[in-house]
Design a protein around this nucleic acid. Sequence first.
DNA 1: TTGTAAGCGTTATCAC
DNA 2: GTGATAACGCTTACAA
Lengths: 348, 348
Amino acid sequence: MSSTIKDIAKLSGVGISTVSRVLNNSGFASPETREKVMAAVRELNYIPNNNARNLKKGSSKTIELLVKSITNPFFQKMIHTIEQKILLRGYNLEIKNVNYSGQEMAIALREVQDRNLCGVILMGGSFEYTEQDFKNLGVPCVLLTVSAAPDVDKALYSSVIIDDEAESYKATEYLISLGHQRIGCICNIYGAMKTPNSLRFQGYKKALAEHGIEIDPSLISTMNDTRSGYEFGFNMMKNLLSRNKNITAIVAMADVIAVGAAKAVLSEGLRIPDDISIIGFDGIEAAEYYSPALDTVSQPAEQMAISAIDALFAMLQGEEGIHTVFEATLLKRGSCAPPGTIAKKERG
Amino acid sequence: MSSTIKDIAKLSGVGISTVSRVLNNSGFASPETREKVMAAVRELNYIPNNNARNLKKGSSKTIELLVKSITNPFFQKMIHTIEQKILLRGYNLEIKNVNYSGQEMAIALREVQDRNLCGVILMGGSFEYTEQDFKNLGVPCVLLTVSAAPDVDKALYSSVIIDDEAESYKATEYLISLGHQRIGCICNIYGAMKTPNSLRFQGYKKALAEHGIEIDPSLISTMNDTRSGYEFGFNMMKNLLSRNKNITAIVAMADVIAVGAAKAVLSEGLRIPDDISIIGFDGIEAAEYYSPALDTVSQPAEQMAISAIDALFAMLQGEEGIHTVFEATLLKRGSCAPPGTIAKKERG
DNA sequence: TTGTAAGCGTTATCAC
DNA sequence: GTGATAACGCTTACAA
């Protein structure tokens, strides 16, 4: 079907290895030979076979991005930047989706060995990767939005995260500072697994505790599920509202949850922020363009993506893992206000 | 690094080809041999090298999904189904993003030759693929949400689409039936390129013309750009509103545009549908959970994805291309109403 | 039923 | 400067 290096060697009247040298700019070749070869390449529309190349070289110039649920709009914001930066460096990017229930490390390992990947980026997942995971992998690995278990040697991997617990603490504290006491929380956590959301949940509880507000389980809507989404937020909020008539604010552990929750609030005839304040997490467009625009703890997606790529290429050049913790930004767009005040002002 | 077929042959004390046969379930092998081999495989944690396998076989069991802009939320709805169905059949899915400005067919061709793909799915793009494109490709190709140029032999490719022009006609007609006359349109079209959006634009114009409504260029906001999105919708709508005080309805050629436009409308202090009716296209969650929920022409994403996979595997078995046109559903959620009526009722 | 050996398209190590 | 030639890890006749 497609032409091989032999075909173009024959056509250009040179040896097979000369062609290879020209194509890879390795070794020497006279300008004339070079031109003859390139002419043949153009004529036959030759495309090198990467399977053969990778097999021979034992490593490809391909990086794979494993996304733990590609439907997460926040991840999308980073995909574009990641792709751009990788292509810019002459590498190739493949994207692989991993279901919420998928074993990302097992898949990563298989893919690396399968295809001689030269590096891997894991986006999403948990904070539970082990030292053995990275050793098995054998190629540079960058964790994006998550990190490894605390006892893992930091040299073995890179990570780019925000301090989920601290940021969530800040968000909750913001609501407290506005005067809220009955602050609800919608969060999806999976058993005892340490995930960004479970950390955010810790931050929420910590903020309440340190401000002397008792934690009311009836204000907390967690679900033993790693799945997030609009529908999840909507259902959880409906549930919360039916159980608590006096809830005044909600912290949603993701913007998609916040949007779903906002819809639930509005569909009950309540107003945002007049009756209920809402703050989300991540910083996705759907929350920005929502009406009202939703407050959020915005992660610096582009910078995080760039850091991840920088870390990956540093490791590719033999350096040790780099670990970056970014600061998120509390975006106040008007979906949070002191409890009751506006409502009373307008109504009364 | 990782173990090879030789290692496991040695360890299990059998020949190299026996191992291969066991692994591929081809040819015969005695149960004892089989067990010995499998034991060695487990012990060494052997993973076959796909580069070598593909190189040898000349074809992989990998299907690549090329997504023309993976940030489009509508495409996401289909990715999950596509992935599931492909894995179910024992094939592997790779996802590759193509920028708005990228040459998807050129990329597809390179990837196919590069990696011995056994099939390709193109999601998004234009209606301008040529017969030569499919011949060059040499493997089954399914177009999803787009199709090829009209003169291309239908046997060479499969396609799964909706009738964009007719559906857009219906949406526009719906607004007309509600009594609207000043119906605006937000659409991104790229030169003379035939895309889903340009077809929808045709449907809009046709509906107006056939109902005796003159087309007012000042109500149309097109942009010579293939990029879509929330921001695009927002800016175009702002622009439209500043130019037209008497516009009563808008048809947006995508839900992301509709959401952005809705935000623009609301941010001007206007109400939906009281002052402006809005209808979008596609059927994404962000429009469903918007407040108010936005009417839309909903594409049957899951069915379309399933059809695409079915078509692909039919072609893989030597059948000719299959072409399916789905019907979209006009979802009335309340963002469209007769012009002025509600507003007047409430205000007066 | 099993092993030997050729070759898939490349790259890399040599002599020339 | 250039061209044979031996791998890379695997599959698959073909031989045993």
